[in-house]
Design a protein around this nucleic acid. Structure first.
Length: 992
RNA sequence: GGGCGCGUGGCGGAAUCGGCAGACGCAGCGGACUCAAAAUCCGCCGCCGCAAGGCAUGAGGGUUCGAGUCCCUCCGCGCCCACCA
C-alpha cells in the first residue's frame, strides 16, 4: 500500500474490484435501495400495505426475522457488534429470494444508564444524546448494507412507543391470575365473582372466607390490589446505593453486586412495584417444550425458575398452642432425622417465638457467644433470646450479599429459646435463626436434617446439635470415607445426601424403614396429609419481578395515588404520561451505610408530581408515581410494534399481528411463537428472554396476541474476540498501537513489552476495530463476507485483520470472471456451460441452499469460492463466463454480498433488483453422477480408489474391489474373511 | 461445590447419518510473468521418512468390519448457577 505512489496508477486495470470501486458501488446501491424502498415488507392491511411484494402477498408465506435490538451507544459500532445483524440480514435476503414475505427491521433499546449518566455530567437532555446516537447507528447499519424495513424502526424512548409500554402496564395492573384456570383474566371478572358471591374473600385472618359486602370500600380495594399482576409490595429489595436505585434479582451478580457498575447491593425494605411473574412459573417451564431454542438456554431458564417438588410440613411450637412453623422440604422422607428447625432472620414469626429467658443449660454458643457474626456479644452470650435475636438481625441486615460470601460460608445463627415438635417423633427440637435460610424461598423456614444435608451438617457441627441417620448410605460410601458400616451419623465426616433405604424412621402409626427414597417420600407425605401436618408442595426459586427504578430516563408509570395513598390507574385515554423536564437528572447516590429512602429524580418536577384529575368522581388532587420502569420494559414487546409501528389505535392491529405472528410455517409444522428466527447474544438467556416471554403470555391470556410464545426459534450468535494487550501494570494498551509478534514479543509505542491475551472486542479491552477501517481497505461486502466466513455463527471467533484479504480476493475473482477489468465490459457469454461446469454449478446450488437454510454461512461461502475457482479455470480458454453460471452465481452471492451482486446483476442487463430475484434452484437430474469414486479398505486402511458406476450393487462392488491389483497386492497371503460394502460409499475387506 | 458445553495442521475452520480426516481461507514454500517490485496466475503445503511405508482429531481404554463422530476414565479450556432446603 505504502509503495503505491511509486508506481503509475494506470499500471492497474481501470475497472478492478478494489476498495475504491467497492465503496463507490456500495454507496450507489444503498442510495438506490433507500429511494426504491427495496426492503419494505408489505402488511396485509393498514398503512404499511404497500411494499415491493404486495402483489404476491397471498402466495408468499411470511417470515419474521428478528435481532435483539441494540442500545444506541455514543461510541458507535465496532466490527464485533454486527455479527448477528449480518447473519439475520443474509438469512432474510436468502428467504426473500426463496419466495417469502420477510419482515426484518431494527429498533433501539434507548432508555438506560449511559444516556442518563451523560446527561448528569453535561446537563444535556438524554433525549438529545439518544437521538444523535440513534442517527449514528442508523448510518452505520446502512453502510453495512443491512436490508431493514426502515419504516418499522422504533425506539423505546419514542413517546408514541412508550405510550403503549404504559398501556401494557395497565393491562398487567388490570389483570389477575386465576390459579384454577391457569391464566390471567381481567380484574373486572374477579370483582364480578366477588360481587355475585361466586367467590369469597379468603385471607389469613378469615381462612373460611368472607362475603364481598362484609368488606369496607377500602378493604375491597386492598383485596383487589393484592390480586393484580402489577402490585405494590413492601418487601426486602436489592438496594444499590452506588446507583441510587433498586434492582431486580436478575440484575444482581452472584457476588452480590450490581450487574451494571459493579456496586455493592444491600437488602432493604421498600414499597415498590412488582410484576407477578411467579404465577407463570409453571407455564414458563412447560412451554419451553414448544419452542426451538438451544438446549443450554432452555436449561438456564429452567434453572433460574428453579422448580422443586417436595412437601410443606407443619411443626407445632412446643408449649405455644396455635403457634406453628411451616417448613418446605424436598426430602420429607428424612423427617424422622430433623433435629432442629431454622428460620430466616427476617421471618415474621420470630417475634412471637422468642422466649423471655434462655432455657436451662443453653450452651453459650447458642446465645451468640464467640460468633463471627456478633463480635459485640458478651462472653457467655447475650443475656436474653430477644437480645441475641436482635443482635443477629442487625448483623444480617447490615451485611451485603457480598460480605456473606466473604464470611466463607461459616455457618452463623442464634437460638430463639423456643422448641418445635417433630411431628413424627414427638421430640421437642430447638428453633434457630440463621442466614443460611433465605426468607424469599419456600416458607423461609426449614427442618434441619444434619445427617443428610450438607448445610445442616455444617451448622449442626458448629452448634453441637444431634445428627441422626435416617437414610442408609451404601457400603461404598462408608468405604470411601474409611468408615465401618456400623459408624453412627455423629462419626461421619460429612452428610450423606444421596438416596437410599430409609432407616430409623418409624413410630406407632407409620414406618418408612427399608423403603427407597421416592417411596418413602410418597408414604410420609400421605401420612402428613392424613394427620393434617403437611402436604405436597412445589416451590420455585423465581421471585416476582421488581419493576420500580429510581431513575429519570425510563418510562413513567401511568399511576397516581389518591388521598388514601392507594394507587389508581390512569385511563388509557390519558396516555401517554410523558417524562417531565427536570433540572437535574441525577439519581440520589448514597453511601453504603446511608439509611435514607431513595428519592427518584422525577420528584424534582414538583409541578408534575402532583396533579388534579377527574377520574370519574370529580376533580381531585393526586400524587404521581415518581419511579420509572426498568430498561427491560420496552424490550419485552418491541417485536410486536415492528409489525404495526404507525398504529395510533392499538399497540398492534389484530389482523396484522395474526399475519406475522401466526402465519403458517413453510414446513407445515405447528408454531407456538410468532417470530420465526430470533438472533442475539447468550447474555440475555434469563433476563430479557424470560421477561419478554412473561409479558407475551399475559398479552396472550388477555387476548391481545395470538401465540403463547413470542419467539419460535432462538439462535445465539457467538462473540468476536480480538487480541488485547496489557502492560506491566496490568493496564490495557490500545491494541492498534502495539507492534511486534509472537516470536520477538509485543511492545507498546514507547517500546515497553506488553502481554497478549484474547477477549471480547470492545472499549474496555481497548481492542475494538471500527467497520470504517475495513471499508477503507476492502469495502462493506468484504466485511460482511469475512464475518460470515470466519466460522459458525454460534461460536466465538478471533478477529484477524490479516485473514480478511482472502474473501476480498474471492470477490475480486468473481468480478474478474464476469467483468473485463481493463474495459469494464461484460465477460458474460451467451453460450452453454459444458457438462462438468454445469454439474458443479447445480451441485453448488444444492449445497449452498442447504447451508443457507441452516445458517451455516461459512460453508456456503466455501462452496461459492470452489465454484468460482473452477469457473476461473474455464474463463481463460472460453474467453468469458457462460450466462447460466454468471446468473446463478450472482443470485447466490446476493444475500452475502448484496452490493457487488446488485452491480453485477445490473451489468448482466437484468431488470429490477437482485434482492427480489428468485434464488436459483438445482436441477435434480444434474446432481446424480454416472460414476462415483469409492475407496477400498483392507482391514480399515484405504488401499485403493475405484471409479464405479453409481448405484452398483454390493456384489458388483465387491468383485471390482477384489479384482483390483492394488487390493490384491495389499491382501498378499491373507485370506478374506468378510467384505463390507456400503453402496457408493466404501468397500472394506476384512481378513481377520 | 453443582450443571452444561468444547478440545482436529503454524492459524481460522471443514467432515450434516459411524464410512476417503484436514473442504475453503490465512500464513508459509517453490515456479511463471517482470530489468525489478507490486498485482495476478500455476504448483506444493498434518507429522516422521530418501522412499516404501508408518503415525495422526487432548490422554488412556472400550464397542464396531470401520470411530474426530458412540460408551467409560482422566487431563485441559469455556460458560452458567451457586447456602434455593
Amino acid at each position: 500500500m505504502s509503495d503505491a505512489a511509486e508506481f503509475p496508477a494506470d499500471d492497474r486495470p481501470a475497472v478492478r474490484y478494489g476498495p475504491e470501486l467497492a465503496n463507490q458501488i456500495e454507496r450507489h446501491w444503498q442510495d438506490r435501495w433507500a429511494l426504491d424502498g427495496t426492503y419494505h415488507a408489505p402488511n396485509p392491511s393498514g398503512e404499511l400495505l404497500v411494499g415491493i411484494g404486495t402483489d404476491e402477498l397471498v402466495e408468499r408465506p411470511k417470515l419474521y426475522v428478528l435481532d435483539m435490538f441494540p442500545y444506541p451507544s455514543g461510541t458507535g459500532l465496532h466490527v464485533g457488534h454486527p455479527l448477528g445483524y449480518i447473519g439475520t440480514d443474509v438469512f432474510a435476503r436468502f428467504k426473500r429470494m426463496s419466495g417469502f414475505n420477510v419482515l426484518h427491521a431494527m429498533g433501539y433499546d434507548a432508555f438506560g444508564l449511559p444516556a442518563e449518566q451523560y446527561a448528569v455530567q453535561t446537563g444535556q437532555h438524554p433525549r438529545v444524546t439518544t437521538e444523535a446516537n440513534i442517527a449514528t447507528m442508523r448510518r452505520q447499519f446502512r453502510a453495512m448494507g443491512l436490508g431493514h424495513d426502515d419504516r418499522r424502526s422504533v425506539a423505546t424512548t419514542d413517546v408514541s412507543f412508550y405510550l403503549w409500554t404504559q398501556w401494557i402496564f395497565l393491562q398487567l395492573f388490570d389483570a389477575w391470575f386465576d390459579v384454577e384456570a391457569g391464566r390471567a383474566r381481567p380484574i373486572a371478572e374477579l370483582v364480578g365473582e366477588f360481587e355475585s358471591g361466586a367467590r369469597l374473600v379468603v385471607d389469613d385472618t378469615h381462612p373460611e372466607g368472607r362475603r364481598w359486602d362484609e368488606l369496607s370500600p377500602l378493604g375491597r380495594r386492598a383485596v383487589i390490589d393484592a390480586h393484580r399482576l402489577a402490585y405494590l409490595d413492601e418487601a426486602a429489595v436489592n438496594w444499590c446505593p452506588g446507583l441510587g436505585t433498586v434492582l431486580a434479582n436478575e440484575e444482581v451478580t452472584a457476588e452480590g453486586r450490581s450487574e451494571r457498575g459493579d456496586f455493592p447491593v444491600f437488602k432493604r425494605n421498600l414499597e415498590q412495584w412488582k410484576l407477578r411473574i411467579t404465577a407463570y412459573a409453571e407455564r414458563l417451564i412447560d412451554d419451553l417444550d414448544l419452542i426451538e431454542w438451544p438446549e443450554p438456554i432452555k436449561l438456564m431458564q429452567r434453572n433460574w425458575i428453579g422448580r422443586s417438588e417436595g412437601a410443606r410440613v407443619t411443626f407445632e411450637v412446643a408449649g405455644e398452642a396455635g403457634l406453628a412453623v411451616e417448613v418446605f422440604t424436598t426430602r420429607p422422607d428424612t423427617l424422622f432425622g430433623a433435629t432442629y428447625v431454622v428460620l430466616a432472620p427476617e421471618h415474621p414469626l420470630v417475634d412471637g417465638l422468642v422466649t423471655r429467658a434462655w432455657p436451662q443449660d443453653t450452651p453459650s454458643s447458642w446465645k451468640g457467644a464467640g460468633s463471627s457474626a456478633m463480635p459485640d456479644a458478651p462472653t457467655g452470650g447475650w443475656p436474653t433470646p430477644a437480645q441475641a435475636v436482635a443482635a443477629y438481625r442487625r448483623h444480617t441486615s447490615a451485611t451485603s450479599d457480598l460480605d456473606r460470601q466473604i464470611d466463607d460460608r461459616d455457618k452463623t445463627g442464634v437460638f430463639t429459646g423456643a422448641f418445635a415438635v417433630n411431628p413424627t417423633t414427638g421430640d421437642a427440637i430447638p428453633v434457630f435463626l440463621a442466614d443460611y435460610v433465605l426468607m424469599g424461598y419456600g416458607t423461609g423456614a426449614i427442618m434441619a436434617v444434619p445427617a443428610h444435608d450438607t448445610r445442616d451438617f455444617e451448622f449442626a457441627t458448629t452448634f453441637d446439635l444431634d445428627i441422626v441417620e435416617v437414610v442408609a448410605p451404601p457400603p461404598a460410601w462408608f468405604a470411601g470415607h474409611d468408615l465401618e458400616p456400623s459408624a453412627t451419623a455423629d462419626q461421619w465426616p460429612e452428610a450423606f445426601t444421596g438416596e437410599g433405604l430409609a432407616t430409623g424412621s418409624s413410630n406407632d402409626e407409620i414406618s418408612l424403614d427399608d423403603l427407597p427414597t421416592p417411596e418413602a417420600k410418597a408414604a410420609i407425605t400421605e401420612w402428613l396429609a392424613a394427620i393434617g401436618a403437611g402436604e405436597l408442595a412445589v416451590t420455585y426459586k423465581l421471585r416476582d419481578w421488581l419493576f420500580s427504578r429510581q431513575r429519570y430516563w425510563g418510562e413513567p408509570f401511568p399511576i397516581v395515588y389518591d388521598e388514601h395513598g392507594l394507587p389508581v390507574a390512569l385511563p388509557a385515554s390519558m396516555l401517554p404520561v410523558e417524562l417531565p423536564e427536570v433540572d437535574d437528572y441525577a439519581p440520589t447516590v448514597l453511601d453504603d451505610d446511608d439509611e435514607s429512602l431513595p428519592a427518584p429524580p422525577l420528584g424534582r418536577a414538583t409541578d408534575w408530581a402532583t396533579v388534579t384529575l377527574d377520574l370519574g368522581d370529580g376533580p381531585k388532587a393526586y400524587r404521581r408515581e415518581l419511579n420509572t420502569m426498568p430498561q427491560w420494559a420496552g424490550s419485552c414487546w418491541y417485536y410486536l410494534r415492528y409489525l404495526d409501528p404507525t398504529n395510533d389505535d392499538a399497540f398492534v392491529d389484530p389482523e396484522v399481528e395474526a399475519y406475522w405472528m401466526q402465519g403458517a410455517r413453510s414446513d407445515g409444522a405447528p408454531t407456538f411463537g410468532g417470530v420465526d428466527l430470533y438472533v442475539g447474544g447468550v447474555e440475555h438467556a434469563v433476563l430479557h428472554l424470560l421477561y419478554a416471554r412473561f409479558w407475551h403470555k399475559v398479552l396472550f391470556d388477555l387476548g391481545h396476541v395470538s401465540t403463547p410464545e413470542p419467539f419460535q426459534r432462538l439462535f445465539n450468535q457467538g462473540y468476536i474476540l480480538a487480541p488485547a494487550y496489557r502492560d506491566s501494570r496490568g493496564v490495557y494498551v490500545e491494541a492498534a498501537s502495539v507492534t511486534g509478534d509472537e516470536a520477538s514479543g509485543f511492545v507498546d509505542p514507547a517500546g515497553n513489552p506488553v502481554l497478549r491475551e484474547y477477549g471480547k472486542m470492545g472499549k474496555s479491552l481497548k481492542n475494538a476495530v471500527s467497520p470504517e477501517d475495513v471499508y477503507d481497505e476492502y469495502g462493506a461486502d468484504t466485511l460482511r463476507l469475512y464475518e460470515m466466513s470466519m466460522g459458525p455463527l454460534d461460536t466465538d471467533r478471533p478477529w484477524s485483520t490479516r485473514d480478511i484479504v482472502g474473501v476480498h480476493r474471492f470477490l475480486q475473482r468473481v468480478w474478474r470472471n464476469l467483468v473485463d477489468e481493463a474495459t469494464g465490459e461484460s465477460r458474460v457469454l451467451e453460450v452453454e456451460a459444458d457438462d462438468a461446469l454445469r454439474r458443479l454449478l447445480h451441485q453448488t446450488i444444492d449445497a449452498v441452499t442447504t447451508e443457507m437454510e441452516a445458517l451455516r454461512f461459512n460453508t456456503a461461502v466455501a462452496k461459492l469460492i470452489e465454484l468460482n475457482n473452477a469457473l476461473g479455470r474455464v474463463v481463460g480458454p472460453l474467453g468469458g463466463t457462460p450466462v447460466e453460471v454468471a446468473d446463478a452465481l450472482v443470485r447466490m452471492l446476493a444475500p452475502l454480498a448484496p452490493h457487488i451482486a446488485e452491480e453485477l446483476w445490473s451489468r448482466l442487463g437484468r431488470d429490477g433488483s437482485v434482492v427480489w430475484a428468485p434464488y436459483p434452484s438445482a436441477d435434480p437430474a444434474l446432481l446424480v453422477t454416472e460414476t462415483v469414486s469409492v475407496p477400498v479398505q483392507v482391514d480399515g486402511k484405504v488401499r485403493a480408489r475405484l471409479e464405479l458406476a453409481a448405484g452398483l450393487d454390493p456384489a458388483g462392488a465387491e468383485a471390482a474391489a477384489l479384482a483390483d491389483e492394488r487390493v490384491v497386492a495389499a491382501l498378499g497371503e491373507r485370506t478374506v474373511a468378510k467384505v463390507v460394502v456400503v453402496p457408493d460409499r466404501i468397500v472394506n475387506i476384512v481378513t481377520r
